[in-house]
Design a binder for these strands. Structure first.
Lengths: 229, 229
DNA sequence: AACAGTTTTTGACATAAATCAAGGAAAGAT
DNA sequence: ATCTTTCCTTGATTTATGTCAAAAACTGTT
């Protein structure tokens, strides 16, 4: 089995599909290399299909008129993105580009809609994907509206610790600038908060490696968002 | 046809369904009256089904630990809500309650999943509903992160004008306090911004009636977010 | 190893919006 | 019509975070 098929067969969207269906899928899909910083689609583009990340990392983001960036999602291998226009019939609501050198698979709109109508389990998987996405958005809105930057940061660290299956050390897989943009702030503020958290013994920062020194403290910060001094 | 069936047959989710399917649906669904301020479900509840608003208005919201509220969505007649747990398998990510006296229809999880697997067009409609929801969330995140309160407010007015099909006068269908919560701010700030916009001749406010006096000015404010003085 | 580029940090300052506190207006109940 | 409660407005003040400017620390490259 090719590397692409392997990624697909383990993706949330196509898990449980028999191998010949996966093969049929790769037949209709087009693979595309994406350079670091390369634009995949822009907000307002028509959107005649969606993508699955095969390798690397893709960010989906919005830009303000003054040029500030807000990252909405980061997608790694196996994760689909850009599906909204396929089902809503409207243009992409945001833009996407590679964070690093990546490979993506493009699925044309019509072929995929046909697959869904004949294959209820793919429809169900897609519903699950979109539901999870909605769930993440509610958390993002909650963070932006109801929590301050230190709380968001602490929450991010704890989430990463879980995803990376290491309760006391995490490695950032994006730059601090990109992390700031994901958390809805700017690099200067992020830098200051990291220093503050270090001074209080919550974490130890060394480049992209963050040691979580005080999990209860971080959990408290993530929930209540207050740091003394 | 009963009032409920009428609402359902015109809803985005069930549009295009033959009448006997609608009848079958209402057979599995349970109607429930909801008082103003009555809780329908809470964040963290298991979620063994989803709802469709029949009458009135439902808000879906999050609360901060300090008690501040962020409204995520407002749903009127025909609009479904609370679907995320049906497909993600996880609990409700937010809470829902009636804004005013309402009626809702509850669809049990299993029955609806069965309907979807046998009826691709319902699956397609649900995918469209979730996609549209995602689209709205990207706008909400953009607003919270990249725009200031005056810009969000101007954008809200323009959107309402469109929905109410009246280019120069809108009537708020929620209280100003609830509007503040939807826009991610507090009543005091909203009040001040409304005054500022009035002083600048952008709008004229009389209770819940807002007259849009300067659409180009509002459009500019919504996009660039700057108000002189 | 030195270079040019980017990313990150630090400092001084500006500002949008929240908080606290209180008065006024509107709406619903008796 | 009056009372009571909720909603809305206004003012004074605080605060978190953004802006601007510059230095320092990395990164990868010749």
């Amino acid at each position: 089995m090719s590397r692409s098929k392997e990624v697909l067969s383990q993706s949330i969207l196509f898990s449980g599909l028999p191998e010949q269906d996966i093969a049929a899928l790769t037949a209709i899909a087009v693979e595309k290399p994406v350079a670091a910083g390369e634009l995949i689609f822009s907000e307002g583009d028509p959107g005649d299909g969606f993508y699955v990340t095969l390798e690397g990392m893709i960010k989906v983001y919005k830009l303000s008129t003054e040029g500030k960036e807000q990252i909405l999602h980061m997608f790694g291998p196996g994760e689909p993105f850009g599906e909204v226009p396929v089902f809503s019939g409207k243009a992409f609501p945001a833009s996407a580009e590679g964070v690093k050198k990546s490979r993506v698979l493009f699925f044309p709109r019509k072929a995929f809609r046909d697959l869904i109508t004949t294959n209820p389990s793919v429809a169900m998987n897609m519903l699950a994907v979109l539901s999870r996405r909605l769930r993440n958005f509610t958390i993002q809105v909650e963070n932006l509206s109801l929590k301050e930057v230190p709380a968001r940061l602490a929450g991010y660290f704890l989430l990463q610790a879980e995803e990376q299956k290491n309760p006391d050390t995490i490695t950032l897989n994006i730059s601090k600038g990109q992390l700031a943009s994901f958390l809805g702030t700017i690099p200067e503020t992020l830098s200051r908060m990291l220093r503050k958290m270090s001074e209080q013994g919550l974490v130890e920062v060394q480049g992209r490696t963050i040691r979580l020194l005080d999990r209860p403290g971080l959990e408290d910060l993530a929930e209540f968002g207050k740091m003394e001094a």
